[in-house]
Amino acid sequence: MRDWQLGGALATYLGATQEPTPAGLAEVVGTAVGATGCALTVDGARYLWGTDTGPWLEHPITYQGEDVGTLAIAPAGPVDELAVAVAAPLAMVRLAAETDALRRAGDTAARELIDDRWRAAAEMEAERRGLERDLHDGAQHHLVALRMSLGLLEHAVATGGVQERVTDLLARVDNAERVLVNTAAGVLPVALVINGLAAALTTELASHPEVVLDVAGLRRRYPAVVESAVYFVCLEAVNNSRKHAPGARVTVTVRDSYRGLEFTATDNGPGFDVTAAGSGLHNLSARATAVGGTVDVRSAPGHGTRITGFVPL
């Protein structure tokens, strides 16, 4: 009789709920057979209905040759027939739980994939902007010098001495091409990598008579990202002065301090309204900020320009 009652109770329970659970099955079994307690163990988790007075006699439940859990009722007694009756519903419950776990895992994986795609896109954009800044701050410096050399060549055509200017111009074209190729490939100047910031700035600015470089106070090496950032900031500062204040005297100073790395770039040009500045000053700030530093630009029409920067230890 109790097997018939259990079968009917299980059918009613499974038909009335969309998500059968081990705890719900334990309640249905215990109620149908008049037990005081019923316990189902599935995947190591124990689901109890009624009182946990025991003693319990665990009985394995198998479905199609596979263990799906154990069943025990109180008071203890033979549960062979009950185990057979509850096997298929318990296997269904277990399968539903596994399917739900796989669904949640799939949802998590999908979200992680979306996050990874967004992260990859953001990193690609950051790399693109970094390359754009490198080209702007490094290679453009050479192109500005090339344009100025063309102006000198034009003057030489009118006054003589063309051959010397042409030779210098060709050398500058070769140098600009080299810098463009290296920058696009992510290659930093050899002097910067091997000998540090002071050597790299000396090598780069030595051929510009209007630029005075003071690196006597720079004796310490810094992380590569810091030296690279400050190197390009200084080149961009010189580049801005040469473009907007042609002929002005430019002084670049880089030195150590007890707090970190300090640098300045000043010119005695016509100055400008800082509030109306373009992307060049934004690049300076972005580079310094990327390594935890700051850049301050002060200028006014008729008063020259002073750029100061600092990267803490």
Rank of each mutant, 00 (worst) to 15 (best):
G151S: 08
R221L: 05
E112G: 00
A109I: 13
E262Q: 14
N175W: 10
A248P: 02
M124V: 11
V28L: 09
G309W: 00
E154C: 10
P22L: 11
L192A: 03
A101N: 10
T266P: 08
V29C: 10
R133N: 11
I114A: 11
L71G: 00
A198E: 08
T308R: 12
P223R: 00
A176S: 03
N268I: 06
V274K: 04
A158P: 00
G302H: 04
Y47K: 05
I73S: 01
R220M: 07
F263G: 05
L188E: 11
Q140P: 01
L213D: 02
R259F: 09
E66C: 07
L131N: 09
V211R: 04
T12Q: 13
A199L: 03
C38S: 07
A276K: 12
G186P: 06
D296Y: 00
V295D: 09
A199W: 02
L213H: 05
T183F: 01
A23M: 08
H208R: 15
T251F: 11
K243L: 14
T99L: 15
A45N: 06
D115C: 02
G217M: 05
R259I: 01
T108Q: 14
R104K: 13
L10W: 10
G34Q: 07
R104G: 01
T202P: 02
L95G: 07
L281Q: 13
R306L: 14
T202I: 01
T159M: 09
R129V: 13
R94K: 12
T203Q: 15
A158F: 04
A265V: 15
V225F: 07
T264M: 06
A288D: 03
A9L: 10
E262R: 11
L6E: 10
Q64P: 03
D43M: 06
A237C: 09
A248Y: 04
A120Q: 11
V226P: 11
G196C: 07
R2Q: 13
Q140R: 11
T203A: 15
D168N: 11
A288G: 06
G30I: 05
A290C: 03
T17G: 02
G271T: 02
L192C: 04
A110G: 10
G293K: 00
E177W: 05
R306V: 15
H141C: 06
S241G: 08
D80K: 05
L25A: 04
T275G: 14
E177A: 08
Q18S: 14
G309C: 00
R178N: 01
Q64H: 12
S241E: 06
L152A: 14
N283W: 11
L284E: 02
P246Q: 12
T51F: 09
D296S: 13
G160E: 01
V28T: 10
G304S: 03
A76N: 01
I73R: 01
E112V: 12
L205C: 02
